[in-house]
Each structure stands twice: as structure tokens, then as C-alpha cells.
């Protein structure tokens, strides 16, 4: 992809915010304090020390990475970051829905990687709640409120807030103006 990249910015709750999370790689020593996100491999390797930290912990998953080994630790996690290596790799839409619908994960689900404006509506409806955006046009569109022109949806979504049933059981209408 030859998409020009800008400095990534974090979009959460309808605005750009300072990213309060630090993403650790798999080899460097863990920092002492602060909110920390690690890979699943790192989490499983250092699980015993990680879950006793006083600050928040999160897991960053690659596209389609299985949830099996971390299902029992979800309650301890404040955030799960799901990576999109290319916007066309849609595996993590399903992962987000499984997290919300089957595993009842209530923390932040963050989209990272190739996050573009024309996909953000789908991501929101699949349960994502925060977006790391590097694409300049998407940053501008988010700031200007030009995201998500479609309010009528033919499926129940993974977030109930913001949508109401409309006509048939499978339909949802966004109550955003």
C-alpha cells in the first residue's frame, strides 16, 4: 500500500485523544508503571507478573489470532487491540464480535493498522470503540464528522447503544442524527 502515512492519532468517544497506552514489544523489559499493552505471546509468557500490575493491561492481537488462551483473563484486561494489516483483511471484525457477543468483553476494542474512513462504520458496528488512524484523509474526515453516512442497517450489531430496532427483528436504525 502506498497510502501516505501521518502520525497515528487515537479516536475515542467521538474525538481525538492522547493515547494513554504504551505498546511493549516482546523482548524489552517491562516498564514499571503505566498502562501497558503486550502481544499474546508476551502475555502468556509473563502472565503471572502482568496480571498483578496495578496499572491497566491490554493485549494486542494480530489479524485472526485466536482468543482461546486468553478467554479466562478477559476480565483483567482493560483493552484489546486488533490489528488490520490491510483493510481488506477482515478477520478481526469477527474477533471483535466474538469478544463482545460471546465473551462479553466490556473494555476498549481498538482497531490498529490500515484503518480507513470507509471501514470505520463497519468497525463500530462490529464492536470497536477506539481507532488508531494514520491515514490523513481519514483523520480529517473524523475531525469533520464526515464518517458513517449510513444510518439504516440490516443486522443487529454488537453494540446496542446508539441503535434501535426498526421494523423487523434484524434491522437497526442509528439514532444519531
Amino acid at each position: 500500500m502506498s497510502t501516505p502515512e501521518a502520525q497515528p492519532m487515537l479516536w475515542r468517544d467521538g474525538r481525538f485523544v492522547e493515547d494513554d497506552w504504551r505498546f511493549a514489544d516482546d523482548s524489552t523489559p517491562l516498564p514499571d508503571g503505566g498502562k501497558l499493552a503486550v502481544s499474546k505471546v508476551r502475555f502468556l509468557a509473563d502472565r503471572s507478573t502482568l496480571i498483578t500490575r496495578s496499572d491497566g493491561i491490554a493485549i494486542a492481537l494480530a489479524s485472526g489470532e485466536a482468543l482461546g488462551e486468553i478467554e479466562n483473563d478477559l476480565e483483567r484486561l482493560e483493552m484489546i487491540a486488533l490489528h488490520f494489516p490491510r483493510y481488506a483483511d477482515g478477520r478481526n471484525y469477527s474477533t471483535a464480535r466474538i469478544l463482545r457477543d460471546r465473551l462479553r468483553f466490556n473494555g476498549e476494542i481498538r482497531a490498529r493498522g490500515d484503518v480507513l474512513r470507509d471501514q470505520i462504520t463497519f468497525m463500530i458496528r462490529a464492536g470497536f470503540s477506539a481507532f488508531e488512524v494514520s491515514h490523513p484523509g481519514t483523520q480529517v474526515a473524523l475531525r469533520d464528522g464526515r464518517i458513517g453516512s449510513i444510518r439504516h442497517h440490516y443486522q443487529p450489531s454488537s453494540i446496542d447503544g446508539g441503535f434501535e430496532a426498526s421494523g423487523y427483528v434484524w434491522r437497526r436504525l442509528s439514532n444519531r442524527a
Binding site: Y87, A88, D89, G90, Y93, S94, R97, Q119, T121, F122, M123, R125, A126, I150, H153, Y154, Q155, S157, Y168, W170, R171
Partner: peptide, 14 residues
């Protein structure tokens, strides 16, 4: 019914 459900399905567009 399948047509409606599958239209811009947020999970199954990619």
C-alpha cells in the same frame, strides 16, 4: 430475508 441480512453486513464485508 437473506438479501436484507447480508446487505452491508459489518462483519462480512471483507
Amino acid at each position: 430475508i437473506l438479501r436484507q441480512w447480508s446487505s452491508l453486513h459489518p462483519e462480512f464485508t471483507f
